[in-house]
Amino acid sequence: MTSDHHHHPAEPAPVERRVAALEQLLTDRGLVPPGFVDAINRAYEQDIGPRNGAKVVARAWVDPEYRQRLLTDSTAAIAELGYGGHEGDHMQVVENTADVHNVVVCTLCSCYPWPVLGLPPAWYKDPPYRARMVREPRALLAEMGCDVQDDVEIAVWDSSAEQRYLVLPQRPPGTDGLSEQELAELVTRDAMIGVARL
């Protein structure tokens, strides 16, 4: 044993080994298709939750009265579409405009509006994201492929258990002919966190 042995990962817990063995067995038996657990976890991370938020955004784009309700009482307006629950309480929707780009971070931990956005992406919990989005949002956004013009102010919203934020992106130009459903398909999770523009 080397002197740095205490830095090595701990032995896997019995339950960890057992769960891994069970997954192997289920895969071998064809009870769980190969890659299906990964796909399920991705679905919960990217597909199921964000689609709820995307429907909220698309409704706001096509219905000015809904948009107004969404901005004034976000939790209630989101609940109108059937989304919410404990983790969707205390929502505040912040609207991107020609002058302001909003982005959400949780500096203390990783508060996240699960019912509308699904599982949080891994980077959302990373301390560097949390720290840098407050300190140098424009540079970090650029690194994430989200260029915000210099004359657009960046507003950083710090989520907490008492207040969770959802960004209402600007409706992309050239989408006048699209239905609400088609519009919803344009809305991405990252746009609703504010690390992407549509």
Binding site: A13, E16, V19, L22, V32, V37, E87, P115, P120, A161
Partner: peptide, 19 residues
Amino acid sequence: RRNGELAFDAPWQPRAFGM
């Protein structure tokens, strides 16, 4: 859930969830 997100503390837990 912790602050609204599924609360996983170790990598095997989302595997068990996914199964």
